[in-house]
Amino acid sequence: MSPIVASIIKGTVALLWVVLNALFLVWFERKVAAWIQNRMGPMRVGRWGWAQTIADGIKCLMKEDIIPLAADKPLFVIAPMVSVASAVLIWIVIPFGPGKSGVFSDLPIGIIFIAAVTSLSVVAVFMSGWGSNNKYALFGAMRGAAQMISYEVALVMSILGVVMLAGSLSLQDIITRQTEAGILGWYLFRQPIAFIIYVIAALAELNRAPFDLMEAESELVSGYHTEYSGLRWLLFMLAEYGHMLAWSAIAASLFMGGWTGPGLGALAGRIPAFDLFNYGIWPYLTGFFWFAFKTYLFIFLAMWLRWTLPRVRIDQLMDLGWKFLLPVSLVNIAATAVLANVWGWYAK
């Protein structure tokens, strides 16, 4: 197969993965919110309202496309493209299963690629806010840019601790490194501080409550996408949920061993017939199951937090990022260096 054709197939699969999961996640988020608030959530379209998001998507597709006269048209049009592109691009390096075939393309610079691509979403937010030529949108975008760059520093510094232990930037290597010592080898247990910083900073990167200052419905009329309506708005939502899925998958890969987990093949010693689960497509299916399970654990955590915690104030947000998370992550790097090398902790 020529490399271009292979790339097109992979890209289409990644796009479908993001779109289908976003469809499901919107419904799931509404259901989780409803359960937490003791409501029913969407119930009308299909059983338990499962087709609600599809119906909403069709509705948005039929809506008139409005570009305000005052808007900077090129910026306004390009912003959703950048946002969606960054949500799809992250998936290149995230492993779904074992080996080379378990990941779209295991770039050796994995982590740095993720940091670079996710930064594109800041650009998209700012393009849309500035391009809308609307005061709410501009305020939302300025806040969003300040918030996202502040937390990105803490995020990158927290992942550094994981990279020190794993000795590689490729997510596939980081996952296999973790499993060498069984479940206690997970960086969730070996880098607990990095894990907590990662979760907080990732929520801030995603602009989800309690850090959803740039959208802040009550003060900014949904911030940077105030002027976006219909399908363009839907594309922003798609990218937002795509990013949420990606950050959860990265969390699962970095801290919880990603796709690794016990499969039916582990029982082969007792039931010889189960040996079949160790070959062919089965390791990939088991890997995908554990990958999806751990990813959705993190997604549920993010939703749970969103519907539980009130929004923080902007000065509290900036203080938390710069005056707490960043110093703590610097200390974490130093502590990891000392514990790992001087005192020989974390030896395999």
């Binding site: 490399p3 271009i4 292979a6 790339s7 097109i8 992979k10 890209g11 289409t12 990644a14 796009l15 597709l61 039929m62 809506k63 008139e64 496309d65 959703p80 493209m81 969606v84 592109a85 949500a87 799809v88 691009l89 998936w91 290149i92 779209f104 393309s105 295991d106 770039l107 219909g230 399908l231 363009r232 594309l235």
Partner: peptide, 29 residues
């Protein structure tokens, strides 16, 4: 080189998805 073809192609496909859906919107809305 395959990796970098992937990176370029993923970006093209994602942007193409946006362009096609906006075109579809123009047709039906």
């Amino acid at each position: 080189s395959q990796s970098y073809i992937d990176v370029g192609m993923f970006a093209v496909i994602a942007i193409g998805f946006v362009v096609v859906s906006m075109w579809l919107n123009r047709v039906v809305a």
